[in-house]
Amino acid sequence: MTESTIKLAVTRYRPGQDREPTVQTYTVPYHDDWVVLDALQYVKDNIDGTLSFRWSCHMGVCGSCGMMVDGTPKLTCAAFLRESYPREVRVEPLANFPVVRDLIVDIDDFMHKLSEVKPYIIREDLDSLPLGLGHELRQTPAELEDFKQFGMCINCMLCYSACPVYAMEPKFLGPAAIALAHRYNMDSRDQGRNQRMPVIGSSEGIWECTFVGECSVVCPKHVDPAAAIQRTKLATTNDWFKSMLMPWGNR
């Protein structure tokens, strides 16, 4: 019995060597429980050691292995070959990012934006809170529910890759960064909203978003960044009209 195989059409680009990205096709064994990442690793270990890509956990939680699979941003550790078989699988670097090499994109822009939105608990007494037994800040399951969904982001960048706004305007803060800011704004333990709003409420923040909604569709963790952005728009608008109509209040 001959082993069944599947073709993998992979975008290659080696700086200094290739002037343009090219497509290289590899034939790998087909197994119905293999994911695209398994096939890429097979290529690297057995066919072509020069193929470069990122991966770490192989269980859909580290966020390393996002790529375009047949034109859609996906975690390659969760995209099965069987979804394409017997057609060939097209593997490209995540869209909307500068490509550094082969399937590796530059996400420094996101890393910078992430720190801009201050994604951590802000409160004046944070460093003086007592620690240990019984000193947790109380938070009911319902209060946890308020933000938990937005804390599921694994920074895999699929949402940026699906966002045409980010593609056209790279200054846009983007779905994941805003979702994470929203996660902290909604956390009952946090008091830092006023420090985050000038960034996420700026013209390059939430207002660039036109609610295409594809970020939430491709999110492998059901974070719904689109909801985070629309809700932040609503809250910011409320704040804005309040401060205009009652400039004396809340200063």
């Binding site: 909203r193 006023n194 420090q195 709003m197 000038p198 409420g201 700026s202 013209s203 207002w207 728009k233 910011t236 608008t237 704040d239 804005w240 009209f241």
Partner: peptide, 8 residues
């Protein structure tokens, strides 16, 4: 807080 835009 203050933001840099009238977008709201």
């Amino acid at each position: 807080y203050k933001i840099n835009t009238n977008e709201p």
